[in-house]
Design a protein around this nucleic acid. Structure first.
Lengths: 189, 189
DNA sequence: GACGCTTGTCAACAGGCGTTGACAAAGCCA
DNA sequence: TGGCTTTGTCAACGCCTGTTGACAAGCGTC
């Protein structure tokens, strides 16, 4: 992404480049571990420019979180095979499951005091809420909480394995087969 | 805990006091957010003393994690009513569920680059491993991964609600009733 | 009582952080 | 061409962090 020579003067492009880089960084590292200078280096720009465009680091974090949209990627597709589909993605396509980039950002920084409040607000508004509406049926609120927690928990579990579940191929299949009915049960009500 | 006057000279007591304070701090805040001076203030001691007793902040963090023991608190009691018992604790007695203080510490700091490696190692050795042995039966590894992830996910979900699930009393009961069979299913194999 | 080891305090260091204001250069308009 | 605004860079600030070495005081031992 980095080109030699002076950066072309284009405020809009630079701004979105900063936002993109911030989204990637915050999805990969915690709020505290991401430095303004890191993001600036990714874009090939001076860190001072970020402050001018986005205000504070908090504002940039919020903008990055906002730019991820809601959890609609999760809620697309047929409800009938949600369990099997999502279980497959969790086990075999972690990157695809990460189309919920906002969830990655939230998980990374939920422990950070400075970021946790922003994460909580965004999560309830853009994740729990839509999920609850989409689930509908009896106990939608409860099922949304459990489902969201379950998905995040599997992410944490994978993270604790160092990026994978560290299982044999045959075990992966059996894991998928165990996850699917649990997920589907929460969908069906 | 703080007493006026000079601190009595007692290395062993001071050391354990520091360790206790560190355990509490790291269970409540992330590795990055906890400062040596914070812990020192809790104990009523100078921060320099911690470095002398424990070496580096990393060493202190590891010692705090070690001092939590393994997850045996989770694995005590009858397997037959594990689901109901743990579901009840998750929903109604979050503090009791936190007897797994080690899990709180791991969850707080899993996002931090400096702490994540230590967390990963400790988790696999002292949490996944014993859990797997205890579960036994078919697919013990897989079930341990899913169960551990599920428990952590519910913790995260509660955290995102700002410390509670933010549910009506009746909803809490229904949540418990939904969690119990999922948990029990993972126990029974 | 004087020595020596232990226990604790204090001040300071180097390094990193987010943020700021002054400055340079590019592009636009008259 | 001359001025003005926009876009980006640079150096520096103040603050906070973990860690260190020098110093003070308690305590056992000769």
């Amino acid at each position: 992404m980095l080109c030699p020579g002076p950066r072309p003067r284009n405020a809009a492009a630079t701004r979105t480049a900063i936002l993109d880089a911030a989204r990637e960084r915050f999805a990969a590292e915690s709020y505290d571990d991401v430095g303004m200078r890191d993001i600036a280096r990714d874009v090939g720009v001076d860190a001072a420019l970020i402050s001018r465009y986005f205000g504070s680091k908090d504002d940039l974090f919020l903008a990055a979180l906002d730019s991820c949209g809601d959890g609609s990627a999760l809620m697309s597709g047929e409800k009938a095979d949600f369990g099997r589909r999502v279980a497959h993605e969790i086990v075999f396509e972690p990157k695809k499951a990460e189309k919920l980039k906002g969830m990655s950002i939230m998980l990374r920084s939920i422990g950070s005091a400075k970021a946790s409040e922003m994460v909580q607000n965004t999560c309830t508004q853009r994740f729990f809420g839509p999920l609850e509406d989409w689930l509908a049926g009896p106990d939608a609120t409860v099922r949304a909480r459990v489902l969201a927690g379950f998905l995040m928990g599997m992410s944490v579990s994978r993270e604790l394995g160092g990026g994978s579940f560290d299982l044999e191929p045959a075990e992966c299949e059996r894991m998928r087969d165990r996850l699917a009915p649990i997920l589907q049960g929460l969908i069906d009500g």
